[in-house]
Amino acid sequence: MPETNQVKIEAEGVRKIYNEGLTNEVDAIADVTLKIRDGEFVALLGPSGCGKSTFLYMVGGFEQVTAGSLTLDHKPIKGPGSNRGIVFQEYVLFPWRTVFNNIAYGLHLRNESKQQIDEKVSRLVTMIGLEGFEEQYPHSLSGGMQQRVAIARAMAYDPDVLLMDEPFGALDAQTRSLMIQDLARVHRETAKTTLFVTHSVEEAILLSDRVFLFSARPSRIKKIFDIDLPYPRSVTDDAFIDIQKLVLNELSEEVGNDIDH
């Protein structure tokens, strides 16, 4: 990771209430203040329903902050835009587009030349290891393959920030650990600022430079962990296990709190 200290995303007292003033009001986020540096890989970790995905959607511009300020490159986030790429747990590929055309989607929107599109897409297809599947439709691919396509689709138009919402949550254990390795490699190659929402401590530590631990709802940042381990990381390393214990302890407090509510 290139060590720049430039702040990419900044949240200052961000608060989110759904359906404010109505009977089904939900106080999702109480106060999130954080800074994410350019090129950093950050995990947003927390108990389920804690508002970490909500925070991601606000960075994506899909949801508006209720109070506080949320900036990308020091400009307030007003809506979605192609300086961000998004990957969802459910892949949500376009079923009517082939693998190639799914990845090329953002490039088609910009009317890039065919030659340019071919070049970029084939580079991404190689990166995600799906050579030979370019003309397949998503429904014929496995979950892991679909998620690889979704990641490539989000990266194709070269956004500054990659937003990932529990991207490996629907995958089996084996596929997941392969995907984690591949994502770590891709991040080292591209050094894109990445926000990675997860409830898996293991995923968070294997991938991130820093882990932001969200408290139970209405959430705050409970703790920030610096993960200063060399790549490739392994779940059997002593250093990994030490950090994992630390994070798990903090997290279990929150899960307990959540049940008390």
Partner: peptide, 21 residues
């Protein structure tokens, strides 16, 4: 799915492009 619309918006699609694609 709402998220499919979001994915398109994030890729830079305009309202018209979302309708069409």
């Amino acid at each position: 799915p709402q998220k499919m619309i979001w994915a398109a918006q994030t890729a830079g699609a305009t309202r018209w492009q979302i309708l069409r694609t």
